[in-house]
Amino acid sequence: MLLDLINLQKVRRAFVYFGFILAALLVQNSILDKIEILGVKAMFLPAVAAVIGFFEGGVWGVVFGLVLGLFCDIGMGESTVLFTVFMPLIGFAAGVLTTFFLTKRLFAFFIISFTAIIIGAFLQLFGVLVISGADPVRVLLTGGLQVLWSTPMIFPVYYSGKRLSELDLSK
């Protein structure tokens, strides 16, 4: 009887997305971390926060964005909670936009996640620029390259998210 209270389908879906987040973190921290092009690494995790909100709605976007952001901040090793704040916002925004304004197509997701990646890079470089007083040209170039290297990851993130959202978890 207690089992009737629990929506097992949603619980299963939550576990699936949690696994998806862990896989994305693994790719970011173990694979992309080792690949530097012109001294810059990709950072595609904002797209992961966006994809959950995009397919599952704003509430799921906020919850999983928070989990992702928390792990992301820990993995980055920086003394910030920047992503813990930023990722839920991205998840929420993606959910709201697809609920009211956008279609759930690749191009719409590309626009959302590309914007998320740009904002993520901007937030990261802002601290370096303002507090460390680093050379603005070099900082902006690093931010630009980070966005550029991260952009191709939008496609696998979209197709993975789409596939997960279509999974039949009723059984």
Partner: peptide, 18 residues
């Protein structure tokens, strides 16, 4: 919405960052 995300994240990030 974009401006809101940017503002909230920026303010929170800066408040605690580094």
């Amino acid at each position: 919405m974009l401006a809101l995300i940017l503002a909230v994240a920026l303010l929170s990030g800066l408040a605690i960052s580094r």
